[in-house]
């Protein structure tokens, strides 16, 4: 899970989930605590989906 997807592609990650921002990949201080948690939940659901999806090459899970 990362914000700068081109770096993850360069270093060879196979399952990539794009995130919010460099200093807070899984949160957003502009939102309320609950809204932030909601973002985190959604991103982690994507990550679980990525982990349970077969891939044959580097894949970005938008």
């Amino acid at each position: 899970m990362c914000t700068v997807v081109p770096i993850s592609l360069t270093v060879g990650a196979n399952r990539i989930v794009p995130t919010v921002a460099i200093p807070h990949p899984l949160g957003n201080p502009a939102l309320t605590k609950e809204e932030e948690k909601d973002i985190r939940r959604k991103l982690l659901n994507k990550a679980l989906n990525a982990l349970s999806t077969e891939v044959s090459e580097q894949t970005v899970f938008e």
């Binding site: 200093p23 807070h24 990949p25 899984l26 949160g27 201080p29 948690k37 985190r40």
Partner: peptide, 15 residues
């Protein structure tokens, strides 16, 4: 600043 306020923003232990 943001990670120090709430480290779950980087390491999502809570969710």
């Amino acid at each position: 600043v943001y990670a120090n306020q709430d480290a779950d923003r980087v390491l999502p232990v809570d969710i």
